[in-house]
Nucleic acid binder design. Structure first.
Lengths: 164, 164
DNA sequence: CGCTGCGACGTTACTCTATATCGCATATCG
DNA sequence: CGATATGCGATATAGAGTAACGTCGCAGCG
């Protein structure tokens, strides 16, 4: 229970992949086999995963895979809002709760925040509008026109904080 | 005037270096020649500068410089709160307004935010407590114990926004 | 005096992250 | 049919960061 806030989506990876394919199709883009494989690996990983770890795993199914193979797929998945990049880790995670974000009116480039546990490596995505409002308003106060924001918090997740 | 929010400190680089040296000494650390050179290059750069660009410039004075040379100096300068890393850019900037931060009660690891202009590359550091409060409180609401935060906003600075 | 510990720095080598570029195949449309 | 677009294989290179080891100089101390 303590991990509730840190858990990824509860549905199966394959179901998520099917939803993702449908969402892409609805936008006129296609989730090809390669892209689907990459997304599957990301969703199956317990934590944010680096591009080259992804590449290693991908080679099991696709021996010819090279860095551009992975990066092209990642670029696509990010455009589609299916994957986010965690800047502090140079790693990638599946976007959890894309439905929720759409429900609250955000597009696929929604503002989000990451909570990164420096003990266990778990990374949770949250979507707090007060945070994005505060950041955007601080930026505007400086005469700045915000477009995209990165908010990443390093600390201890609930489970690791208990141990203290 | 439009750039007021984006300007770096107004005093000369050398004066800043002297202050930095004094601040280090007060903490029992020393700003050696190497560290001073690296800090000078960062302060003189108009924008955040990458480690390898720094290395290239450093080699003019110090032909034997290698990556560890730069990274060790950067680690020191970051510990001393004289330099920040911009995660989105994999680059480094001088900490503007360290005095102001100390004045408002923060140590040298103060929470800060970056405004990064995607047109001209200018990067401004701001220190808005409402932002850091909002982020910290969102994190705690998820049972997370925040330690350090990265807030980086990409958009258009005042000068570049005028042009539209 | 020589020993020891420590911090700063040099040096080599390596890993990881990311992009540029060329080229081929297919697909879709007028 | 040709023309343009997209996906992807393949090679090469740039950029970011770290590991490991050695050396020098400078305390403090028996």
């Amino acid at each position: 229970m303590a991990e509730a806030g840190i858990m990824a989506g509860t549905q199966s990876v394959e179901a998520t992949l099917d939803e993702a394919a449908a969402a892409c199709a609805a936008r006129g883009a296609q989730l090809t086999d390669l892209r689907r494989q990459v997304l599957r690996l990301i969703l199956a990983a317990p934590h944010p995963i680096g591009a080259y770890a992804l590449l290693d795993q991908l080679r099991a199914e696709r021996p010819g895979a090279a860095p551009p193979t992975v990066y092209r797929a990642l670029d696509f998945l990010r455009q589609q809002g299916l994957v986010h990049r965690v800047e502090r880790l140079n790693a990638f995670v599946g976007c959890t709760g894309a439905e929720a974000h759409h429900a609250c009116g955000h597009g696929h480039d929604h503002p989000h925040q990451f909570l990164i546990c420096s003990v266990c490596g778990a990374t949770a995505e949250v979507c707090d509008s007060r945070v994005s409002e505060a950041v955007a308003s601080a930026a505007r106060a400086a005469g700045f026109r915000p477009v995209r924001m990165t908010v990443e918090v390093e600390g201890r997740c609930a489970a690791c904080a208990e141990v203290t």
